[in-house]
Simulated scan of single mutants.
Amino acid sequence: MASLTLDEIYQLAYQSLCQAGADDANASAVATTVTHAERDGSASHGLFRIPGYLKSLLSGKVNGKADPQPEQVTPAILRCHGDHGYAPLALQRSVPALAEAAKTYGIAALTLTHSHHFAALWPEVEALAEHDLMGFSCVSYKPVVAPAGGNEAIFGTNPIAFAWPRPGRSPLVYDMATAAMAQGEVQIAARDGHSVPLGTGLGPDGELTTDPQEILKGVLLPFGGHKGSAIAMMVELMAGPLVGESLSFETAERDNVDGGPPQGGQFLLAVSPQILGGENWSQQAEGLFTRLEAMEGVRLPGQRRHNLRENQGNREVNDSLLAEIRQLAPQA
């Protein structure tokens, strides 16, 4: 493991993206997202993602000079064509307009299409919570998850993210795959030689296994059996037909398999508790959080991430990952 400062992590991500063909705006947006993931302890969405970003730039699949512009379809509906670039810049430009619409009308939605999402979902919903809005988002991927009762992949890991504002305090935020484990975490376990919990996935023989290498050859499973499977299907519909984009299996059919993220859709919803719930919304929610925190062994979602954020010290990064990044972008 190598020890890097947060600025070194940003510079490595930024410079490698620029060398692979991204312009300043796109490289800066992606590098910021990657650095925030490392800062907050989400290694599976930090520098770990950079090789995939670079490969998709080098292959020409992704437009490194994308110029996404949000469009106001109705007063409460926004749409952003990603210009075949990475999602962070499109989100950076669209989320403020989404927040403004929700604060004006009480509820607003954003659809993101023709974009490549490879990052965690929490940054965009947390940004909404910082505007005192409830945020929800979901995105699909290529099929790696079998439906309950099946052994053939049809769903993506299909994450959902939710944020609840807490004025004067860090918001409550969670970001979770509807798979039993996010694919990135399985890949890191395979790289580092760790086993995963039974129920994470099936090997190519269709049998349960704790070996992440075998699961990567087979399929992941949804969390909670049929319940997680139903939520994964909901995400397929919300991040696909609802926003005018492809389903996971359709996404796979058009992807060039360069190791980077495929083109897909994202759905974001912003709601004002002040407008919908009235003056007491915050106090009522805090009553729930107080009871939860009083229980031994219970912590609110996102607490660990916000605690880690306070530490601005160095982060440990896998040596082989750094070598792969420098092989793809030697001058970074």
Rank of each mutant, 00 (worst) to 15 (best):
A189R: 01
A190T: 11
R191I: 07
R191M: 11
D192V: 04
G193T: 05
H194T: 01
H194S: 06
S195R: 12
S195Y: 00
V196S: 03
V196E: 03
P197S: 12
P197W: 12
L198N: 12
L198Y: 11
L198H: 12
L198M: 15
G199M: 10
G199I: 04
T200C: 07
G201V: 04
L202K: 01
L202V: 05
G203R: 01
G203T: 00
G203H: 05
G203V: 00
P204W: 08
P204E: 15
P204Q: 14
P204M: 12
D205W: 05
D205R: 07
G206E: 08
G206F: 14
G206A: 07
E207W: 00
L208W: 11
T210K: 06
T210H: 00
T210S: 15
D211H: 07
D211T: 08
D211V: 06
P212W: 14
Q213T: 15
Q213M: 10
Q213R: 15
E214T: 10
E214L: 15
I215Q: 02
I215A: 03
I215C: 03
L216E: 05
L216N: 04
G218K: 04
G218M: 05
V219C: 08
V219T: 12
V219I: 05
V219W: 05
V219D: 04
L220P: 02
L220A: 04
L220Y: 05
L221Y: 12
L221M: 14
G224Q: 06
G224Y: 01
G224W: 00
G224C: 09
G224N: 08
G225C: 06
G225S: 06
G225N: 05
G225D: 07
H226S: 13
H226C: 02
H226N: 08
K227H: 13
K227G: 09
G228A: 02
G228Y: 03
S229P: 05
A230I: 04
A230P: 01
A230T: 06
A230H: 07
I231G: 00
M233Q: 15
M233R: 10
M233E: 14
M234I: 14
M234F: 13
V235S: 02
E236F: 05
E236Q: 10
E236I: 03
L237Y: 06
M238H: 11
M238C: 12
G240R: 09
P241M: 13
P241K: 13
L242M: 13
L242F: 13
V243W: 10
V243D: 09
V243L: 09
V243S: 06
G244Q: 11
G244H: 10
G244A: 10
G244R: 07
E245F: 08
E245C: 02
E245N: 10
S246C: 01
S246M: 14
S246W: 13
